[in-house]
Every structure is written in C-alpha cells, then in structure tokens.
Design a protein around this nucleic acid. Sequence first.
DNA 1: TTGACATTTATTGTTAACAATGTTTCCGTG
DNA 2: CACGGAAACATTGTTAACAATAAATGTCAA
Lengths: 271, 271
Amino acid sequence: MSTKIWVVFANGSLSGYRKRLNQKTQHKSVFNVSRVQSAEQHEVLEFSDSADEQLIIDRVFRAVMEQRLAPGTKLNESVLCKTFGVGRMRVRRALLLLANQGIVDLQSNRGAFVACPDPREANEVFEARMHLEPSLVRQVALEIDAAGVKILKDHIAQEISAQSRTDRTELIRLSGEFHVKIATVTGNTVLHKVMRELVTRTSLIVGLFGSTLHTCCPDDEHEQIFRAIERRDPDASADLIREHLQHIQRSLNLAMPKMDEPDLVSILRGG
Amino acid sequence: MSTKIWVVFANGSLSGYRKRLNQKTQHKSVFNVSRVQSAEQHEVLEFSDSADEQLIIDRVFRAVMEQRLAPGTKLNESVLCKTFGVGRMRVRRALLLLANQGIVDLQSNRGAFVACPDPREANEVFEARMHLEPSLVRQVALEIDAAGVKILKDHIAQEISAQSRTDRTELIRLSGEFHVKIATVTGNTVLHKVMRELVTRTSLIVGLFGSTLHTCCPDDEHEQIFRAIERRDPDASADLIREHLQHIQRSLNLAMPKMDEPDLVSILRGG
DNA sequence: TTGACATTTATTGTTAACAATGTTTCCGTG
DNA sequence: CACGGAAACATTGTTAACAATAAATGTCAA
C-alpha cells in the first residue's frame, strides 16, 4: 500500500498531521520527527501508491510481449482483482491505460480484451518504427558510451543463451526488448516510452500474423546490429535495423484474417 | 449520454432486452425492431459513452496548445465536473489519460496540474521529434496526393490569415497543428497519435521557455516546408523541417528555471 | 428438436458516501 | 507581533452498494 515519510520544515503544518498520524500508525511511519524540526526544507518522499497499478500494467505488458496472452483474450476485472489482490478501481485504471496504449481493447459493457490489431494497424506500427528506429540507432551508434555498450552486450548474451536453451518465451521477450533497450541507452525517457509502446504492439502483431517461429527472432540480426553500434558505424547500424524491421514485416502473413465476429459470419455463410 | 441502436439477428437475445427497453425508454431508442427481425447479422452501433470524456481531453489539449492553460495551473476536479457537466469519474479518467500523455502532472493527494516540463524533458521531446519528423516529412513528400496537398495548403492559408489578423492564440494553435497535420495526411493513426502527443508537449515547453513570441511561429518556415512537400522534394522537406525544429529549440531559454518548489527554496536561501 | 420468449446469472458502469490527506484559518502564548 | 499548535475546511482517494448491460440458462409450443 502506501508509505510516506514526512520530513517537515519547522514552520507549522505538521502539527495537525502528527496528531492524526499518532492516532492510527498502521500504515504510516514518521521517523525522527523531533530531530527533523530543525530541518530546513520541506520534503516529502512518497513510495508511490500507484506501484501496484503499474505492476498490473507491467505484467500484462510482459505477458503480451511473451505472447502468453493471446490477442482477443478477455481480461476479467474480478479475476485481475483476485490475481493482484487489489481493488477494482486499480484494475480499471490499469486497463484504461493499457487501452490508451493500444494493448487492450476496451469494449463498452463487455469488458477488456487483449487487442487484435488488424493488418492495417500492423502496417502502421511498422511504418512508425521504420521512421523512428533507423534515426534512433544512428544516434546511438554515434553517442553510446561504455556503459551503454555493456547493456547491449549483456542483452545479446542473454539472447544467445535463451536461443541455445531453446527457451521460446524468453527469446520472444528478449527479442522485443532489444529494441526498447536501444532507446533506453539514449537516456531519453520520451523515446523510451514511445518505443516500448510500439514494440509491445509489434509483439501482438507477430503473435497474430507471425507464420513461423522464425518471425520473431530472425537469426543473429540483433547481434549484427549490436556490432555495428559497437564499432560506432551509424550508417551500417541504420541500414541493418531497417533491413531487420523489413524482414520481420515481410515474414508476416497479413492475409490471414483474425477470428473476429464479422469474419466468422462471412466464413460460415460462404460454406 | 449514451445511445445505442440494436439491430439484432433473429435468433433470440433481443427478447429480454426489448422488455427492458420498453420499460425505460428515456435514453434508449430502438428503431424498426420488427422489421429488423429478419436481418441476417447481429450488429451494434454504439454512440460512444466516452464522448464527453474525450471532450474533456480535447479541450485540455487545445487549451494547452493555445497556451491558455499555463504550466502549473491546477485542474480542480469539481471545477472540471461543473464545467463539463459530468461526474467525477469521467473527469478523473480524463486526467489519468492526460497524465499518461505527459500533459498533466498527477500528484498524489494534491491533484492534477498542467505539466511543467524541465529543460531535460524539453530536450528529450525535441530529440524525439528530430528523430521522427524528417523521416516522416520525407515520406509525405514522396507519397502525398492531391487531397493531402489541399489539406496542408488550406492550413497554410489559415496560418497566414491568423498572422495578418495578429490572432496570437489561433496562430499558436495552428503553428503546432501544422506538424500534426503532416502526420495526418499519411493516414497512419499510430503516427498521428504520437505526433499529437509530442506537439502538445512542445506547446507546453514553448509556453514555459519561449522567450519571444517569435519562438512559436518563426516567419514563414511552415510555408517553405509546404512548398517543398508540394513539389515532391523529400530532401529539401526533411532539411527544412530539421532546421525548423532546430530554430524553435534554439530560441528557447532553457536556462530559465521554472517556479518550482525546490528552485524557490534554493533561490531564497541564496539571497 | 428448434426457435421465440422469459428468467437468471455474471459482468461492467455509475454513483454516492466515506476515509485520508492537504490547505487554510484561527487562537492563544511568549 | 511571531510562533506553535489545533481545529475547520477543501480536495482527493477509496470503497461498496446499486444500476445497466451482456451472456447464459430455462421454458414451452409448434
């Protein structure tokens, strides 16, 4: 739940609180209040209330990226409540945010479902990534420092390990996360968020339209990209990631219709 | 509020509903139910419940883009409720989504405030735009059709008109929206959403750090970009928009600290 | 058995009351 | 008057009950 630590400037304001705090010290803690009276600055450290909310989001994110939550799966509110041991409000807020990011589809009075991107949306996501990632990786190749190289190197090692263990789930997750980490090493949180969203939606798409296992983890392309970055070669990096994205996109079978109501009807009628 | 029209396949399922509908026909309407009994496909047309919710979001978006909502402004829940004539839930959901898009800062137990991006975040937003927009505008220059050209041409006309009328608010809004419209003409909804978010955050940034009026509407750069697009010149388009973004970014005074608590304290202590 | 209709159940959407917190005001004392 | 303290007030966060809807089940007649 919530834990707050008050460190309060001695100009009033705490007085009223301390009384309330002493009344019910269940989930509140005040440390060294007397000592702190002499502190100079009002400061509040808050261990965010929304931690469990973010947990739900992360779990769904991860499950989608690992393709363990199939598109179309219904996300029942009460089930989520029990699973995470939180109230309905938290679950609904998490679902709203997930819907806002295109990961789940929120249908009025029917509930939340893991999104089923259609081919058009799939192409849109890839188009967006094709705009963003070459330029991004170019910058990374130019500016990356030793710490960044290590992050990517470790990641590649993990991928190789998962590949040798034929750990499919882990490999799928790592495969997507590689692209997120490229954004991470720039230190740009805005880019990080955008990439995370696009990559997760890509996972959905690959899960829906990916014909072969090969689709999500094409050979050692990630390693090649890393090597180009490592030797600070922006042009090669950009070219490689462009090809990489094209390979994934081309390996999709976008003609395959998803199991959607209208399609089902037309199929049955045709038979 | 909500209005639904049921058109139901005659295989049951409606029966129970019609009873309820007849009981209270206040905000529900059923048209031609008898005729529809012979229809073949179950279909639900829903006039989204979340329309008013989206309205709140759009209004805040617009107010921020027009810089009429200053960064730091508190967005009181009850005020918003009265303003839009909706319940608290809707307002809170809207605020949550706005926070998720970085437009609003949601502080626990204190409320929602128009975001105050710091210089670091400002640079991140510009960096993200510098990655995205040149590539985007290049594609637009290559693929745009007559309808797209008209959209942009009309927009430029509007900008010129607002400039001649010295309608500052309108000019600020149009100035941001030009970039969104470039994404719009691609027809890519994913890109559109990303651009909309980045541009709105830019408006916040310009409002905070823009030293001069000139910052937000630099000469006729938009018109030049449009002309490059119109003559299908991808290289020139990309170069121009890159310069354009750099001009805006350079005109910012990022050294100027915002009126934030920690800064205020340090200022007072130093004096 | 099937199809129209009614009923029941499960799930989601909304609201309002309550709890917790932040903010302001006020009061007495030195 | 400055200051600490306490209460009053305003606002936000949470919960639980209720309303509305969807989905499932049951009934009965042709």
